[in-house]
Amino acid sequence: MMIKVSGLNVTFGQGTKANHVVRGVDFGIGTGECFGLVGESGCGKSTILGAIAGRVKQWSGEIRINGEAVQQSRRELAQLRQQQIVFQDPFGSLHPRHTIGRVLSEPLEIHGISDRDVRIAKVLDQVGLPQRFRFRYPHQLSGGQRQRVAIARALILDPQILLLDEPTSALDVSIQAEILNLLKDLREERGLTYLLVSHDMAVVTHLCDRIAVMQKGKFVEVTTRAAMIKGDLSHPYTRLLRDGSLGYRPVSSTAAE
């Protein structure tokens, strides 16, 4: 088991302002598995990812990475290195005045790794970018190329886990296809474990073996790719999300809000 999460709770703020965002979530992800997290905006998907990555610290419960329990604060550098995040908006997550070469060498510097040139050359290759891109700035790249850079940056430390937060949501369909293919190849080649967050049921089903459906901080159902494809689902909310992603169906009861 690469990731094991038990009784995870996250609350932001205190007292009357307390916002209990993740409410007792349990799941495990096997080594080399791709696990998906779907649900509507604000349900707590990114917060779970953040807790695993060490970015969100206000959690309680237990998180084990590769068998080892991690702490809310003060994580070892070696431990942080094992899981890397890729965000939705590659533009927002890349420093505008840093060349791609610098973006990629930064994590290596932080972790005190020396053979930087070799590693950068290798990772550019792996994500399908030409070597000359080292000297370019983020604004000189297309959206798809920027997302390749973000994936390269995540891979350069040789992590075992990629935490993917809506990695293709800002991309056009054709570019999304390239990135999804790349992610699929990388997982097979390197035996990576993925946790993929998305609001797009088709994307999650394409990439993931198992899928957790989240609503208001809780898992309402954990299902498999096969069941999702067949529509063999137990929770009405899962069916609503699935139907919605297939296109428009007039709804009879339109009362809301």
Partner: peptide
Amino acid sequence: QGLLEALPSLTEPKDRLAVL
């Protein structure tokens, strides 16, 4: 055609998506 083939599908899963 390329757009349709690039789209991941819930009902007709594809192993790889066609690149436009």
